[in-house]
Design a protein around this nucleic acid. Structure first.
Length: 646
DNA sequence: GGCAAAGCTG
């Protein structure tokens, strides 16, 4: 191959973004003939492979085709695998490398330690550390810096400190790694101390502080630091937006985004990370109108060609209850799709109780050549359990390892427990739990307890409670579920007992909130909120509605009184559940023509509210779409799409 | 060819 051909191939490879392009360039290079200097060509192609999305398998196969790959080539593969979803494969490649008597260098250790960090394997990290010492590379600046992060990721802050202390001349990157290390181990004050002491700070140092504080939920600290920053970049802004969004602070996340586009102008806001983060905030809150505006912006800038943006967009529509829009984005607007896009669609349909359609999507995905990963299997099993597709779910579970090479994890087992439990096959569910190959965790038992509370099985519930008391004795949601089981069986003394023990341990439940969008504004209601004019308006309307319903024969179901309230408010708790306030408020404010009322709730809807929603949908001729923690309920003409199965 | 750095799927 002539040198001009070389240059052409190299520049083509640099522009490759997707695997198809890579394969084309590779074929081209092979056609021109690369025999003379195949080693160089091999290196270039390998390097391109680890930077192209989803090309790591291709790169691994490529490595196997070289008769005598050198350390550089092995390092490249180790690096690619370290960032993949199976970082442990880096270590296997390292073993192969040693098998060929190739000596690891500083590059090898930097990538390998990164793999150990991503894999969160302390034992692998310690082993690599000793190998690094053996090769005299443990105090190498890059190796040492990654070692600091590795130990921190594995929870060993003392070892991270030691690794840092032995660096002869730590640079700003090493100092930054130390800051992150402290945050990683939950030591914000120490992170702050290091930040104050470091000889030199760059913008990344500041951004790391923002990320550290927001991840720990110390949003006030983050906000203060952010305002102190003289220089901000896209990372600073998106860290703030994502930080607030991930803690459920929708208004603030949106506020930061608005400020970003207003103060920084068009070039600055067209960043896919801040967009996905702000879309996620809209999705959580059910802020459809804001989401639609974002969709417009995305179309204008052409950012919907970025897969993550498209994914976030379709997820936003799905979670706002506009499944048709989600499908439209999926099939018409996204030219690039990945497994996340498919999984989002499967989950979206599953949340609507449209399990059969989820299965159709799942099969289409497989046919299109995407191998299901563990999370897409969780989604499709979830679809089965929420639609009562017991047989289909079981079959999928049984063949997932054989057909897709995914070993069932505790999450998949949890789906099957849910599958049996929701369907009322409680004994089968219990047997399944006792036969699991791994130790059932609290989530598994809680799923079973949830099934007991749906089907009112006191005996099993009490047994499960014992297990939960061992694993997580202080979980308030378990107590609520248990008290619901007792209440359904009218065992009031047991209800009181659970309630008292909750009081003694001074357990507090997550406060339940519901939000609703009326005339493009999102209103949120919390069961235990202070009185405000909006709340007053909602309460007044709710009383009027309840009076009307009572005259038509409604009687409150008290079995779920504990559902989402603080103990002090149990008096008229059931009347004031946040979803009831939200629906009352929107009936008062919305015109009858705006037929659909969409409510988003952070916890599961209780039985009484579920009944009331049905009655309201009939009495007021509205469609009420309610998204709770686990699914959508579509109330229409007095009945619900979940057919009381949730 | 590295080391520290924000996002989408249960």
């Amino acid at each position: 191959m002539s040198s001009s051909h070389h240059l052409q191939c190299v520049s083509l490879l640099k522009r490759c973004k997707y695997l198809v392009h890579l394969k084309q360039v590779h074929a081209l290079a092979a056609k021109i003939g690369t025999d003379a200097d195949s080693l160089f060509a091999g290196k270039v192609i390998l390097l391109a492979s680890v930077t192209v999305v989803d090309a790591i398998e291709y790169a691994c196969r490529l490595l196997a085709t070289f008769p005598s790959p050198d350390a550089f080539m092995f390092n490249t593969i180790i690096r690619g695998l370290a960032e993949s979803d199976q970082p442990n494969r880096s270590l296997l490649t390292y073993a192969q490398m040693k098998g060929r008597s190739l000596s690891p260098d500083s590059f090898s250790f930097a990538f390998l330690l990164k793999a150990a960090a991503n894999f969160k394997s302390l034992s692998a990290g310690i082993q690599l550390h000793s190998h690094a010492i053996h090769h005299g590379l443990d105090a190498h600046l890059f190796v040492g810096t990654t070692m600091v992060s590795m130990y921190a990721e594995c929870g060993c802050i003392a070892s991270a400190e030691k690794a840092f202390d032995q660096l002869p001349q730590p640079n700003v990157v090493a100092w930054n790694a130390m800051v992150t290390a402290y945050f990683c181990c939950g030591e914000a004050p120490n992170a702050r101390k290091v930040f104050a002491q470091m000889p030199l700070r760059n913008l990344t140092s500041w951004n790391l502080m923002l990320a550290g504080y927001t991840k720990m939920g110390e949003l006030g600290e983050a906000r203060m630091l952010f305002s102190e920053m003289e220089l901000k970049d896209q990372v600073s802004w998106s860290t703030m937006i994502a930080g607030f969004a991930s803690h459920g602070h929708f208004e603030e996340a949106l506020g930061f985004f608005r400020k970003l586009i207003m103060t920084q102008g068009i070039l600055w806001w067209s960043n896919e990370v801040s967009l996905t983060a702000v879309l996620s905030a809209c999705a959580q809150r059910g802020a459809f109108e804001s989401g639609k505006i974002l969709h417009g912006l995305i179309q204008k800038t052409g950012l919907n060609s970025i897969v993550a943006v498209g994914n976030a967009l379709l997820d936003m529509y799905a979670r706002c209850g506009h499944i048709a829009m989600a499908q439209r984005v999926f099939s018409r607007e996204m030219c690039n799709k990945n497994i996340v896009s498919w999984t989002s669609m499967i989950a979206a349909l599953a949340m609507q109780g449209r399990g059969e359609e989820s299965l159709v999507f799942f099969n289409e995905m497989v046919e299109s050549g995407i191998r299901p990963d563990w999370i897409s299997l969780v989604a499709v099993l979830y679809a089965c359990s929420h639609s009562g597709l017991v047989q289909q779910g079981c079959e999928l579970f049984q063949r997932m390892e054989n057909d897709y090479g995914v070993q069932p994890s505790v999450e998949h087992y949890g789906c099957v427990v849910d599958l049996y439990g929701r369907a009322g096959l409680l004994e089968k569910a219990y047997d399944f739990v006792t036969q699991m190959p791994m130790k059932p965790n609290a989530i598994i038992w809680r799923t079973l307890l949830g099934a007991c509370s749906i089907h009112g099985n006191v005996e099993l519930a009490e047994g499960v409670r014992m297990k939960l008391a061992e694993l997580e004795p202080n979980d308030s949601s378990d107590c609520v579920l248990l008290s619901n089981v007792y209440a359904m069986a009218r065992k009031w003394s047991n209800v009181a007992e659970v309630r008292n023990s909750m009081n003694e341990k001074s357990m507090r439940k997550d406060p339940g909130w519901s939000s609703v969008e009326v005339n493009k504004v999102v209103y949120s209601f919390v069961a235990s909120d202070k009185l405000s004019s909006v709340r007053e308006e909602a309460i007044e309307k709710l009383e009027e509605i309840m009076l009307k319903l009572r005259m038509e024969g409604y009687k409150p179901q008290v079995s779920n009184v504990l559902h989402d309230i603080e103990e002090e408010e149990k008096e008229d708790a059931i009347v004031r559940h946040s979803e009831k306030l939200a629906v009352a408020f929107s009936i008062g404010r919305m015109r009858v023509e705006d037929q659909v009322i969409t409510i988003v709730k952070n916890l599961r809807v209780c039985r009484d509210c579920h009944e009331v929603m049905k009655l309201i949908s009939k009495a007021y001729n509205r469609i009420i779409l309610l998204r709770d923690r686990s699914r959508f309920h579509n109330f229409k003409e007095g009945s619900c799409s979940c057919r009381d199965y949730w």
